[in-house]
């Protein structure tokens, strides 16, 4: 349904131009959750803003590739133009529920604003729809809360309001950019299961962006792992977790502490993620990779496959059984 093909997002002009996201492709289907995993600075959030049509121009722009939704090209099309042209909707919820709502406008009005644009309804009809949406995201006393201001709500409640606003836009695809990172652990699980449930009720696809592999394994149907602005491995969630092909994927999984293993040193990946434009040749993970050889720093790795859905970009993929 949503198809991103060879997306390149660049920043800067002329000689100082760098590609922040290069050659990213993925697909999202209805009622499926795609997890996009990577460290900070890997280009996850920029990718999602590009899909939303909300890249901050002129600092960042789409230099190549395409974004299609139900066959319509929506590349670089801001949300209001998507509405005008009758293209399908992509909605987004953000990492910081504290700052993502307008502090001086009651939340009901903020939802109604979206309802009016996407349903064409006004007045009491739009207001009732807003209340219905608040009930769907399980906000107690929805009617009363319509007049509440964001500062009167907790972080978890604000994130639910954000989800209600996103749903008011009747999206085909919901992008969730680390929506639980800023929330308490107990609230995190509630928000995650809510997103999973709404994905079915609203018949939409979800692009779930996170650096938390635990969350991905519970929520996602398939996973794309991003590193240095590229997707280095993607596949169905069980396949990718059981048989990681790329050393970076396996490194990330080793970083998750295992309580059953008792006390031991935390595993880390040595070094730091490259800055955009820092590595232009070969595999971008090569400087930090235990398996790297000379060819890794000179030649771009080819695609290796493990079945029809699972693939990675690596010269020396981890063989089955090894690690």
């Amino acid at each position: 349904m949503l198809t991103v093909r060879n997306l390149v997002v660049s920043g800067g002009k002329g000689a100082s131009r760098v590609d922040i996201v290069s050659d990213v492709s993925f697909e999202i289907e209805r009622r499926k959750v795609l997890g996009l995993v990577g460290e900070s600075g890997s280009g996850k959030s920029i990718t999602s803003l590009a899909v939303m049509g909300l890249l901050p121009h002129p600092q960042l722009w789409v230099r190549g590739g395409s974004i299609e939704l139900d066959g319509a090209d929506i590349t670089e099309e801001p949300p209001y133009l998507r509405v005008e042209r009758g293209h399908g909707g992509v909605s987004m919820i953000f990492q910081e529920p504290m700052t993502s709502l307008n502090p001086v406008v009651p939340i009901g009005d903020q939802i109604v604003e979206a309802v009016r644009v996407h349903d064409g309804s006004t007045g009491i009809t739009a207001r009732n729809r807003a209340q219905e949406l608040l009930e769907m995201v399980r906000i107690p006393d929805a009617r009363l809360q319509l007049t509440a201001y964001p500062h009167e709500l907790s972080g978890g409640m604000r994130q639910r309001v954000m989800i209600a606003i996103a749903l008011a836009c009747r999206p085909q695809v919901l992008i969730a950019d680390e929506p639980t990172t800023a929330l308490d652990v107990t609230v995190q699980m509630q928000v995650l299961s809510l997103i999973r449930e709404l994905c079915d009720t609203f018949d939409m696809g979800v692009l779930f962006i996170t650096h938390d592999l635990g969350v991905v394994s519970e929520l996602a149907d398939s996973v794309s792992v991003m590193y240095g602005g590229k997707i280095v491995e993607n596949g169905p969630v069980e396949r990718l977790f059981n048989v990681p092909l790329h050393p970076y994927t396996s490194g990330l999984m080793n970083c998750v502490p295992d309580p059953s293993a008792g006390h031991r040193r935390f595993q880390t990946i040595p070094g730091q993620a490259p800055k955009p434009g820092e590595i232009t040749k070969g595999c971008r993970f090569a400087p930090r990779c235990r398996h790297a050889q000379a060819v890794c720093t000179t030649d771009t790795p080819a695609k290796v496959v493990d079945g029809p859905l699972h693939s990675a970009q690596c010269h020396f993929p981890i063989a089955r059984g090894a690690s």
Binding site: M52, L54, P78, P79, Y80, R82, V83, G89, S91, M92, F94, E96, T99, S100, L101, N102, P103, V104, V105, E113, A114, V117, H118, M162, I165, A166, A168, C169
Partner: peptide, 23 residues
């Protein structure tokens, strides 16, 4: 961030400017 949220709702740029930024 809330200006980005406002844009993501698909409301017209003028309305984003008046109601969310100017306000």
């Amino acid at each position: 961030d809330y200006v980005r949220t406002a844009r993501s709702k698909g409301i017209r740029p003028q309305r984003v400017v008046i109601r969310h930024i100017l306000r």
